[in-house]
């Protein structure tokens, strides 16, 4: 079931080729099944968001909407306050990404280059931070933020997201740093350049794909996060998208299926587009980071 290079293909025996005639279609059937399982929910969300409420309640529904009804989007934006919360989400996710990238870059470098007990401690912490359930953290965290007046504020949320997406980002990024040959740096260092200069002028440019992957990871984690926002953000004007959507479900949304679908779709669109645009670079970045960690 693995990729066969052109060379071996020519050397194949007839029996293998015959078996391939059976196996290959089966593989396509399996792939199609995956495409349906993964893609159908999205397709359904898309078509539902364009259906008028009358069509949604019709006894014999069709997959594609009979007429494109855009009113769901307008109403969802208004009812669920999506513009305001979308803006909040963008602010939080972008700030988190910037802060995380800036502080994790030097740290990742240190972890990758200086193998010491710090490295073991950091790796331990990274795993540990995954094990602990948020419930244990949230109450004291809430009180810490309260003392500095950052409860119910986007700045507080950015700080929390920064800290909690840092471990994983750091782990991935140091994998990428480790894959850059040390010789390149040493050439720069002998010129008398300081460590920071080396970092900025030699390591940074080589980290391109890795940085794209890790910053996308941070962005999406912050964009998607729900639990901390649920507890920390109380002012409706500061709600992020997941929060206002969850509250929309609890009120009007259950009756207005079309609006709910439209709102959910709108909330996903930015990260989805972003994602599809840089998907190719992302995959390669993630792949190398994942394996070399």
């Amino acid at each position: 079931m693995t990729a066969v290079t052109a060379g071996t293909a020519r050397r194949r025996t007839p029996s293998i080729r015959r078996r391939n005639r059976v196996v290959r279609p089966l593989q396509y059937v399996a792939l199609a099944a995956y495409v349906v399982f993964l893609g159908f929910p999205l397709l359904f969300l898309l078509t539902t968001s364009f259906k008028s409420s009358r069509e949604l309640l019709a006894p014999n529904p069709t997959l594609l909407p009979q007429s494109l009804d855009l009113s769901n989007f307008g109403q969802a934006i208004q009812q669920a306050n999506l513009l305001q919360s979308g803006l909040n989400s963008v602010i939080v996710a972008v700030s988190t990404t910037i802060v995380v990238t800036v502080i994790s870059l030097p740290a990742a470098y240190a972890l990758a280059r200086f193998r010491s007990r710090i490295r073991s401690a950091a790796t331990g912490w990274i795993l540990l931070s995954q094990v602990f359930p948020f419930i244990l953290v949230i109450i004291p965290l809430f009180l810490v933020l309260k003392q500095v007046g950052l409860v119910d504020s986007l700045v507080g949320l950015v700080l929390v997201y920064t800290v909690w997406s840092l471990p994983f980002t750091l782990w991935m990024l140091q994998g990428h740093v480790a894959s850059i040959p040390v010789d390149l740096e040493e050439a720069g260092a002998t010129d008398g350049a300081g460590r920071l200069r080396v970092l900025v002028s030699i390591v940074l440019p080589l980290l391109g794909p890795g940085l794209v992957a890790t910053s996308l990871f941070t962005f999406i984690s912050a964009w998607n996060e729900f639990f901390f926002a649920l507890v920390l953000i109380q002012n409706p004007a500061l709600q992020t998208l997941p929060l206002s959507l969850a509250r929309f479900v609890g009120s009007e949304g259950q009756v207005q299926l079309g609006q709910l679908a439209a709102g959910a779709l709108l909330a996903t669109l930015p990260s989805l587009l972003f994602f599809v645009l840089i998907q190719r670079r992302l995959t390669s970045g993630l792949l190398s980071g994942a394996v070399k960690g």
């Binding site: 593989q27 792939l31 495409v35 993964l38 929910p41 998208l241 709102g263 959910a264 989805l272 599809v276």
Partner: peptide, 30 residues
Amino acid sequence: LKLRGRWLARTLALVPWAIPPVTIAIMWRL
């Protein structure tokens, strides 16, 4: 494998990650 159309499956395989869990839940509720 080098199957035709695998780009579609590959993109779709990644997509759930870009969707907030809240949206995923709403979608499946529908």
